[in-house]
C-alpha cells in the first residue's frame, strides 16, 4: 500500500544544503504535535537529513493544523 502523505513539497532542485553541498531531494518526513503524527514529503538533505519547512507551509497548513489540534 502506498504511503499516506498529508502534504508534499518538491524542491525541484532549487534548494542546496550548505553543510553537505548537495541538492535537497523530496524525502519522507513527519510532523509531530501533541502526540499526533502527520507523514509528509518535504525537501530533505540526502546526506545530513536536514528537513526544510518552507515559510508558506509553516504559516499556512502547519499553523492551521496546530490550531485545530490545540483545541482538541
Amino acid at each position: 500500500m502506498a504511503d499516506k502523505n498529508y502534504y508534499t513539497v518538491d524542491p525541484e532542485g532549487k534548494l542546496m544544503c550548505m553543510k553537505c553541498r548537495c541538492k535537497l531531494q523530496k524525502g519522507k518526513a513527519k510532523f509531530m504535535y501533541l502526540d499526533n503524527g502527520f507523514p509528509v514529503e518535504l525537501p530533505v538533505c540526502p546526506r545530513c537529513g536536514f528537513v526544510y519547512v518552507p515559510e508558506e507551509l509553516a504559516l499556512g497548513k502547519v499553523l492551521s493544523v496546530e490550531k485545530a489540534l490545540e483545541d482538541k
Binding site: A29, K30, M32, Y33, G49, A58, V62, E66
Partner: peptide, 14 residues
C-alpha cells in the same frame, strides 16, 4: 530578511 516559526516538530521518516 524574514523569520517564521512553527510549534510542530519535524523529523525524518525512514
Amino acid at each position: 530578511h524574514s523569520a517564521y516559526s512553527h510549534r510542530m516538530t519535524v523529523v525524518n521518516r525512514l
